[in-house]
Amino acid sequence: MTKSTPILQISGESGGGQLLRSSLSLSLVTGRPFRMINIRGKRPKPGLMRQHLTCVKAAAEVGDACVDGAELGSVELVFRPGKIVGGDYSFAIGSGGSTTLVLQTLLPALLHAEKSSTVRIEGGTHNPMAPPYEFIEHCYLPMLWSMGVDAKAKLEQVGFMQAGGGVITAEIWPVKQWKKFELTERGAAVETFGRVLHAHLPSDIAQREIMTASALLEWPAHHIELRYARESIGPGNAVFLGARFANVCEITSGIAQLGKSSEAVATGAAKGLRSYLASSAPVGVHLADQLLLPMALAGGGVFHTVAISDHTRTNMALIEQFLPVKFAVEEPAPGVKSITCR
């Protein structure tokens, strides 16, 4: 792209942080500058929060970008990307904001660098409204591997929402050749599994979660592992429930929050997995949203998912603005949605 490349105008009112993160990734990969107004306009606290600001600054660093409006609370941002540079990077959110969302912002860009990269991100590793580390490891990255991506991640230290202090690291190699993505069947069932991650809180909280989730899923209580995250600098608790198939893995989660009972945390995660298992579609609703951008970069593909969220529709429309692709949604069977990218 040249200096005369027109700047893309984007309204961030309805997309939340996802719209900003996808815009940053796509801008870096395509070289297309953008202006986003009304950032997170429908949120109770509009504008850039710490984790969004970290995404912006991190994207600017790996892509040698010029940025206007990169400040806490800013509701308008202008981002002009330069050349993506591979290397060793370290970013600290400065709060318990999500490290996994920062990683997902940088990953597409660093796949297009000329050399490999290592990334260290400090903040929250297990947050409400964000994929927990286990989701990245077991659900997200394996899908990217099938598209020709060579990347791996590691949980160095657990960090919960308020205190932060968690660390994830990643190694990313330039993609040699993208492969089109196709996932329409789960394949044979392999296993179900569960874990409660627990730090510096009364142990009965974890026990109540295990009993609630196992009852709803009709699992024996010992099927859900209890792990004490004593390395966490602050208190926290997270429930993960998973189902692994030959072609895909799905994890649903619940993160403890002030004012939310143990039973409510576990019930949300258990109902999520139960809903997924009741469908035949391989891709869960959150993973569907996260696969759109890599699938488009890979030149297209198709997958079946359980439902289409507003996030997913907004993300599809945004990707079509940056890349020469079109998404189509069909319903090949009751309760199954097919997303095709051409």
Results as ranks from 00 to 15, higher is better:
residue 292 L to H: 05
residue 303 F to C: 02
residue 283 V to A: 04
residue 136 I to G: 00
residue 32 R to L: 07
residue 153 A to F: 01
residue 338 S to Y: 02
residue 193 F to T: 06
residue 131 P to F: 05
residue 54 T to G: 00
residue 306 V to S: 13
residue 161 M to S: 10
residue 125 T to M: 11
residue 19 L to W: 09
residue 179 K to N: 13
residue 72 L to H: 11
residue 323 L to R: 05
residue 195 R to Q: 14
residue 138 H to G: 00
residue 135 F to L: 09
residue 160 F to Q: 09
residue 163 A to V: 14
residue 188 A to L: 07
residue 284 G to S: 15
residue 90 S to P: 00
residue 106 L to T: 02
residue 9 Q to M: 09
residue 323 L to K: 08
residue 247 N to R: 12
residue 152 K to G: 06
residue 143 M to Q: 15
residue 53 L to V: 08
residue 330 E to L: 08
residue 235 P to F: 10
residue 120 R to H: 04
residue 214 S to N: 09
residue 52 H to P: 01
residue 211 M to Q: 15
residue 69 G to F: 08
residue 3 K to C: 01
residue 54 T to H: 05
residue 240 F to K: 01
residue 77 L to E: 10
residue 335 G to I: 09
residue 79 F to K: 12
residue 272 G to L: 13
residue 129 M to E: 12
residue 147 M to Q: 08
residue 78 V to D: 09
residue 203 S to W: 08
residue 11 S to C: 12
residue 23 S to D: 04
residue 13 E to D: 06
residue 304 H to S: 08
residue 285 V to P: 02
residue 34 F to K: 11
residue 118 T to Q: 11
residue 341 C to V: 15
residue 26 L to P: 01
residue 296 A to G: 01
residue 219 W to H: 03
residue 342 R to F: 03
residue 233 I to T: 05
residue 207 Q to M: 13
residue 139 C to E: 13
residue 38 N to S: 15
residue 339 I to Q: 06
residue 149 V to A: 10
residue 123 G to M: 10
residue 258 L to K: 13
residue 235 P to A: 03
residue 24 L to P: 09
residue 252 T to Y: 12
residue 138 H to W: 01
residue 339 I to K: 10
residue 102 V to R: 07
residue 287 L to A: 12
residue 259 G to V: 03
residue 306 V to G: 07
residue 163 A to W: 01
residue 61 E to G: 00
residue 322 F to N: 01
residue 120 R to Q: 10
residue 90 S to N: 03
residue 122 E to W: 02
residue 46 P to L: 06
residue 109 A to N: 01
residue 277 L to G: 01
residue 3 K to H: 13
residue 259 G to N: 05
residue 80 R to L: 13
